[in-house]
Design a protein around this nucleic acid. Structure first.
Lengths: 201, 201
DNA sequence: GTCTATAGCCTGATAGAC
DNA sequence: GTCTATCAGGCTATAGAC
């Protein structure tokens, strides 16, 4: 319905990436054709091949473009000079809010977990998540020393992500309420769920 | 490599479904062609259309077939006449083990969360998960009355599932150890993670 | 039930004009 | 840079023989 001509993008290359991202996120690599992408941008398929050598390269670049601003987003939350508990709280809140605000990014992550090859998965882990994951592991050592930091950090991330990824499914499961789709309610629940198991002074 | 001709299946229809399931699970609906499925079964594409009216119907029936044995699997774990804590323990253990043992099922679930339409998602929720989800919600009331049962049950399921779904990604994140791929280690961690936050007598 | 053959369309990708 | 035109091949699905 909405046809938001790119306001941010300058240049055709950026416009292509910005139109391709939601298509790949919502339909997947195999489900989207170069013709569809071209149509969304308002050019012919042939023009796509001037900017990207093939479909896979376009997909790869679309991912990199979608990730571009992400790496910066969480750094601050974890590096603040505050108590460990406050760092955990701001991390959970920020992650929840981010995933709600950027559904394309969230769905691209989800698809990579299913279809990402070794190369892309490694890139994802090392260039996007590693720094935050390290900070989370450090937090684990401070807040929950009785756990493996790696497993603990995955648990935190998984808790947040699953609530969001299962949103449609949850709507048909007993006890669902409208408010459960509110990121603040999810973040609040997840935080309480974690903190009850953590040795807070 | 391995070409395990169907040993369980009796009849072509079952053979088709059994060959289609891993293909859909690993590559996805849009990524798999009727030709590929036919080739895996050892028949021609035309023969598929004798058994299933079109590709979508085949996919739908393949899902139903993959789910068929699942509904029974978890019932006992939750209906045992044991303490709530023991029911939680056997649920987490059984879910973890099941997802590791049936990667096709696990991946089909993951794909449904991404691409499932309203109809399939509802079917999934109501015919497969509802009963176990209710039992989990009941468990929540007994073990963690300070939480919303719905959100608590989702958290438990999400904890287990995310560890498994993120397996490839985890391999490239700091602190990963080989043993973290062992379902018993994951189940043990998840259980401890949950139980520390639960009021056990 | 399964086959051969094929219709009709869509796909990724390229050549060459502008 | 973007176009028109097009190729070669893959796709779902069907018709009709056996």
């Amino acid at each position: 319905m909405t046809k938001p001509i790119q306001a941010i993008a300058t240049g055709t290359r950026a416009a292509i990436l910005e139109q391709a991202i939601p298509l790949f996120a919502n339909i997947g690599f195999a489900g989207v054709s170069m013709r569809e992408i071209a149509k969304a941008v308002g050019i012919t398929p042939a023009a796509l091949y001037y900017h990207f050598s093939d479909k896979e390269t376009l997909y790869f670049e679309a991912m990199r473009y979608a990730y571009a601003d992400q790496a910066e987003s969480f750094k601050m939350a974890l590096q603040l000079e505050v108590t460990p508990r406050q760092r955990l709280e701001s991390f959970v809140l920020q992650l929840t809010q981010y995933l709600y605000d950027k559904p394309d990014f969230q769905r691209l992550m989800q698809r990579e977990r299913l279809d990402g090859d070794e190369h892309r998965t490694k890139l994802l882990a090392e260039h996007l998540f590693q720094e935050q994951f390290k900070a989370m592991s450090e937090l684990a050592r401070e807040l929950a020393p009785e756990f493996e930091p790696h497993l603990w950090a995955i648990s935190i991330a998984g808790l947040v992500m699953y609530h969001i990824e299962a949103e449609h499914l949850r709507h048909h499961l007993p006890g669902w309420k409208q408010e459960h789709d509110d990121p603040r309610v999810v973040a609040d629940h997840v935080l309480r769920f974690i903190l009850q198991g953590v040795n807070i002074d």
